[in-house]
Amino acid sequence: MLPFIDLAAQRRRLGTAVDEAVAKVLNHCQFILGPEVRAFEAELAAFSGAKHAVTCASGTDALVLALRAFGVGPGDAVICPSFTFCATAEVAVLVGATPVYVDIDPVSFNINPAHIAGAVETAREQGLTPKVVIPVDLFGLAADHGAIAAAAKAHDLLVLDDAAQGFGATYNNRRIGTFGHATATSFFPAKPLGCYGDGGAVMTDDDKLADLMRSIRMHGQGSDRYDNVRIGLASRLDTIQAAVLSEKLKIFPEEIEARDRVARRYAEGLRDVVTVPTVPAGMTSVWAQYTIRLKPGAREAFAAALKAEGIPTAIYYPIPLHKQQAYKQYPVGKGGVAVSEAVAHEVISLPMHAYLDEATQDRIIDGVRRAVVR
């Protein structure tokens, strides 16, 4: 079976650089918030164009840190798409707020900004205070941040960009990291920029917000580690992971270009048999996943045919949040989520990584063409 994401190929390219970086940490023994963490935060901020980057223990914690720093809690509504990983809604519940689901655009699979107003209305009807909208840069493509910002301003919402899959992409020729009031990302190993464990970060231009998040990630400490001025978390990116990420960030721009080449070859080879993803003008994708859309009812046989040829596939996401057991009690905004429900039955993702060579990709393309039910 071919690898769906080939982390071993990237490991070979990095060679001894990661080993040497980790060895430095093992030698100085500053395993929590050591110098590599501060260095990586500066590198991450510079890469994204944000003033601050605050690292933490996971992408989920990154979202929680931002919501806590925003002051979101019980009685507040957090608007988010239903077609996304559960963490986007989970974090609202973790801080005591209520997620309100909105639908997605059928082409980009990202949040439909036109539905935000309906979600605000639904929240208010249920006695909630709409506080935040969390767009998701799904599958590596930036959401429509201009339209989202306009809708958020019209309804007095804060914007928390969930860039767990989209970090490194651009919108209007600006890298993700400076849209909205804060941008959260994940360094889970399968992400385009991933570490060798869990990790996350929040980027912001807001000095006060950054200071609050630094306090919250350290148990809410004030001027001293035993001067706790607020309820916080133990959520720090460990120094070894920061060292790994610094080395990976050095090659990240080249990997983004390589992923884009792979995506273009997929589109050229498949656009006449399946619905392939597209990137609007002025935007780029980091192609966290290469997700195609099939005809209704075709997915199960399609996946089985590829599996028989040793070609892996994955489905992101087969059940929208509003239908999942833990999340179905939360409200759906006016306008419904019909697109989310349809897409959940029709999307499937193909192998995608920066080290997918042309011969292997041709094998996948040929397999897909044979597997498609015309």
Rank of each mutant, 00 (worst) to 15 (best):
Pro3Leu: 03
Ala8Ser: 15
Arg13Asp: 15
Val18Cys: 03
Ala23Pro: 01
Val25Tyr: 00
Cys29Thr: 07
Phe40Leu: 13
Gly49Gln: 01
Lys51Leu: 11
Gly59His: 04
Asp61Asn: 14
Asp61Pro: 10
Arg68Gly: 04
Pro74Asn: 03
Asp76Gln: 06
Asp76His: 12
Asp76Ser: 10
Ala77Val: 08
Pro81Cys: 06
Ser82Leu: 05
Ala87Val: 15
Ala87Thr: 06
Asp105Arg: 11
Ser108Tyr: 08
Ser108Gln: 04
Ile116Ala: 11
Gly118Lys: 00
Val120Leu: 13
Pro130Gly: 02
Gly140Trp: 08
Ala142Cys: 15
Ala142Asn: 03
Ile148Pro: 00
Ala164Leu: 03
Ala169Ser: 14
Gly177Arg: 01
Phe179Arg: 06
Ala182Leu: 01
Phe188Lys: 08
Gly197Leu: 13
Ala201Gly: 05
Gly220Met: 04
Gly222Asp: 12
Arg230Ile: 09
Ile231Cys: 07
Gly232Glu: 00
Leu233Ser: 01
Ile240Met: 10
Ala243Tyr: 02
Ala243Trp: 05
Val262Arg: 00
Leu270Arg: 06
Arg271Ser: 10
Val274Lys: 01
Gly282Tyr: 05
Thr284Arg: 13
Ser285Phe: 15
Val286Thr: 00
Gln289Gly: 15
Arg299Leu: 02
Ala304Met: 01
Glu309His: 11
Leu321Met: 11
Val337His: 04
Val339Cys: 11
Glu346Thr: 15
Ser349Trp: 12
Pro351Thr: 03
His353Thr: 04
Tyr355His: 12
Leu356Asp: 03
Leu356Ala: 05
Glu358Thr: 14
Gln361Phe: 07
Gln361Glu: 13
Gly367Phe: 06
